[in-house]
Simulated assay, not measured.
Amino acid sequence: MGEPQPRRSQPTATPPADLVAAPGYGARRMYQAYLAAWNRHVDGVTTGPQFAVLSAIRAYPDSDQSSLAGAVALDTSTMADVCRRMERRGLIRRTESPRDARRKILSLTDDGIAALEEVTRRTRRLDRELLEALPEERRGEIAGLLNTLGAHWEKVADRGPLSDTA
């Protein structure tokens, strides 16, 4: 038997220029990095969508589940799943609407309020770190631009086929 051969390190490939120029690549890369940062620095149990739902319930108490889905950029079936999981964890209450039993009215529990306060504190700290590379006076503008792009991309996703003409 021969000696084991040392592993040769592979050079790290850089992304091709046309990929770097694509906004979707940048968005996916940012999202992957955000998820990793969230899990490490904010909460490995409470997800970003759950945080958004908790925040929306605090902002719009006693609103129904379907109405809040749009506010947090979730489709209604995903919203229902997220709410069921948070209800099982004791973070929210879902009660039937007195006017329509199909509508679920959402409210925070004491545990939900406490979890939201802690996750909000950690999230704001992460937000500061994520935007640290930008001049302080531009951070609000950049966050606004990201939300504007998100709203536009949602509209593009809902459109019919895109044309090939420029």
Rank of each mutant, 00 (worst) to 15 (best):
D110M: 13
G112H: 05
D158G: 13
L126F: 05
Y25Q: 02
E96F: 13
D75I: 10
S97F: 04
V72E: 02
M86I: 08
T165K: 08
G70F: 00
A59H: 03
E129K: 09
A157Y: 05
A21I: 07
D18H: 11
P49C: 03
M86V: 00
D75G: 09
G144H: 02
R99T: 12
A36C: 11
E117N: 08
R40V: 14
D62Q: 02
A27H: 07
R125A: 13
W153R: 06
I105E: 08
A80K: 13
R85I: 11
L116V: 06
D100N: 11
A73Q: 08
S9C: 09
G160H: 05
G44T: 12
E132C: 10
T95F: 12
V20R: 06
R122W: 03
R138C: 15
T47M: 03
M1S: 15
Q10F: 12
Q32P: 01
G44S: 05
L162F: 13
R121K: 13
Y60A: 05
A52D: 07
A17V: 15
M86F: 04
A133I: 10
L106Q: 14
G140M: 11
A21R: 11
M79R: 00
T47Y: 01
A73L: 10
A73H: 11
P161Y: 03
I113P: 06
Q5T: 15
G2S: 15
E141H: 04
S66D: 11
R88L: 06
D81V: 13
L146F: 11
L116W: 07
A27Y: 11
A17S: 13
A27E: 08
A52Y: 00
P4C: 09
R8C: 06
R7V: 12
D18I: 06
E129W: 06
T12M: 06
P16L: 05
A69F: 00
Q50M: 03
E132H: 12
V42W: 02
K155S: 07
V82F: 05
N39M: 14
G70R: 02
G144F: 05
S66P: 05
Q10D: 05
P6Y: 02
G90L: 04
T148G: 07
L106V: 01
D64I: 01
L68C: 01
P4I: 13
K104L: 11
S97Y: 04
L134P: 02
V53P: 00
P23G: 10
Q32I: 12
I57N: 00
G140T: 13
Q50I: 00
K104Y: 12
